[in-house]
């Protein structure tokens, strides 16, 4: 089964790198969607089918936590798992993510293996399924 993933980050390079890392991890992706802040992400959700959201925390206009809270209040979207990506590792912030309904969080800097492990865990694939696909960095220019 393939999954449509929405990547929310105000940094264009970071969105590109997250996409490449997910591709390199062998996770089965249908379509990638991108948004540069929480507000744009909500617009994407209104127009497209999304299975998983990976969102930065610190963004202008609407940050990741505000977006997460809006999603969880909306009956149409509140079952979509949201993974928060953050540089901030304070326990209080992480608790805020979970309290607001985040499925998990990823701390930057991250490795492709960490991303894959989280996605597999959240989307419910078995470890055996995921082990069939080795990390592939042949086509993306990344040194992972």
């Amino acid at each position: 089964m393939s999954y449509n993933i929405l990547i929310v980050d105000d940094s264009l390079p970071m969105r590109a790198v997250i996409k490449k890392v997910i591709k390199a991890s062998g996770f089965d992706v249908g379509k990638f969607y991108e948004a540069e802040n929480g507000k744009n992400a909500l617009d994407v959700l209104n127009d497209e089918w999304v299975d998983l959201i990976i969102s930065d925390y610190n963004m202008p206009v609407m940050n990741g936590l505000e977006m997460l809270e809006s999603i969880k209040k909306n009956d149409m979207f509140n079952s979509i798992p949201v993974v928060m990506v953050t540089t901030e590792g304070s326990q209080q912030r992480i608790e805020e993510f979970f309290k607001s309904g985040a499925a998990d969080y990823i701390k930057k800097p991250f490795t492709p293996e960490q991303i894959k492990t989280k996605l597999v865990m959240i989307m419910g694939e078995t470890e055996n399924d995921s082990e069939e696909t080795e990390i592939d960095n042949s086509d993306d220019g990344l040194d992972f």
Partner: peptide
């Protein structure tokens, strides 16, 4: 951004800094 966020989580992971 990554360096600053990491500094604070290593400095004190109980404290909340707003970036």
């Amino acid at each position: 951004n990554m360096i600053l966020g990491n500094i604070f989580s290593k400095y004190d992971d109980q404290a909340v800094f707003n970036l």
